[in-house]
Amino acid sequence: MSNYQAFVVRESDGVYSGTVEKVDFVGLQDGEVRVKVEYSSLNYKDALSASGNKGVTKNYPHIPGIDAAGVVTESKSTLFGVGDLVIVSCYDLGMNHPGGYAEYIQVPESWVIPMPTKMTTREAMVYGTAGFTAALSVYRLLQNGQKPEMGPIVVTGALGGVGSIACQILNKLKFDVIAASSNGMSDEMMNLLGATSQFTKMETDDQSGRPMLRSAWGGAIDVVGGNTLTTLLKACNPLGNVTTCGNIGSGDLNMTVYPFILRGVSLLGVDAQSCPMPLRREIWNLLAADWAIDLSDQLVFETDLDGLNHYIQLMLTKKSRGRVVVKL
């Protein structure tokens, strides 16, 4: 076999579109492995790459997909051999390196994670970078002293990939969870997320201009940024923690230092892309064991390469929910 199928994004007259094409194999270099991809997943960064966002992907044509899980079919690595089940996630995969929306990927050994015991390739991609980011956010809260008795945790973007998984992990760890989303959700959806209550955008988008607000929650996991993040910080209980991992609302943060110096609130950054490998493995092992959640079919949608464009458009228009896995 000299080629394989992949979802290739091309640019024509300023318009970017993705189609399934045949791509030729290239020779394996020392320290690299070739992985037959069984599943990938859709993340917001993938949707940006597929729509020509040069802040994510500089050159086209390009194969997006920042996640992949599968089996090693060829190796010039001392760390991984043929037949090993692996996860490849983050780093430059799917950004400026051909990504997981392909039957095969070819990557440096330093990007590869052994598949945790009892985790399947599909389960790994139901989590994907979004689930990893959610778990890393929870990890950062715990490492900085967050406890359930300090008050409920607000999770923004609760119907999205990061938010939905963060809610479920927090619930498993006995935290009260306030699920915040731009649209209301049913009692059934709240039960699936493990949330005890919900917020609409109004409650997390303070427009008063006051430097601080009445304490209202113990901490937060935020994917929005901008004034939402500012609001979460201004109303956080003393010594609470707020994590930030996204800027779909805005990259700006306009506020005073008062929540930090008068209440001891901590703002914790979460960087999934360049997370050190030892911590990366620890987080994946937690997802496979102690932090494993019920991967409800109501929050997981499956597609093949031909159906990707539909879900990419849903994500770009902020109409997606849960997780989308791509079966190769």
Rank of each mutant, 00 (worst) to 15 (best):
G55W: 04
G55N: 15
V56E: 01
K58S: 14
K58I: 03
P61V: 09
I63T: 14
I63D: 01
G65R: 02
I66V: 15
I66W: 00
D67H: 11
A69T: 05
A69G: 06
A69S: 15
A69K: 04
G70A: 09
G70K: 08
V71W: 00
V72W: 06
T73Y: 00
S75A: 13
K76T: 05
S77Y: 11
L79A: 15
L79M: 12
F80P: 04
G83R: 09
G83D: 07
G83E: 05
V86C: 04
S89P: 00
C90Y: 13
L93Y: 01
L93M: 09
N96G: 01
P98Y: 08
P98K: 10
G99L: 10
G99V: 10
Y101R: 03
A102H: 02
A102K: 02
A102L: 06
E103C: 07
E103T: 01
Y104K: 12
I105Y: 13
P108M: 09
P108G: 15
E109R: 07
E109V: 04
S110M: 01
W111G: 02
V112W: 11
V112N: 11
I113N: 10
I113E: 06
P114F: 09
P114K: 15
M115T: 08
P116T: 13
P116M: 05
T117D: 14
K118P: 00
K118A: 14
K118R: 14
M119I: 12
T120H: 05
R122V: 00
E123G: 07
E123V: 01
E123T: 12
E123C: 02
A124Q: 03
V126E: 11
G128S: 08
G128Y: 03
T129Y: 00
A130D: 10
F132E: 08
T133M: 01
A134D: 03
A134R: 03
A135W: 03
L136S: 10
S137Q: 04
V138N: 02
V138D: 03
R140D: 07
L141N: 10
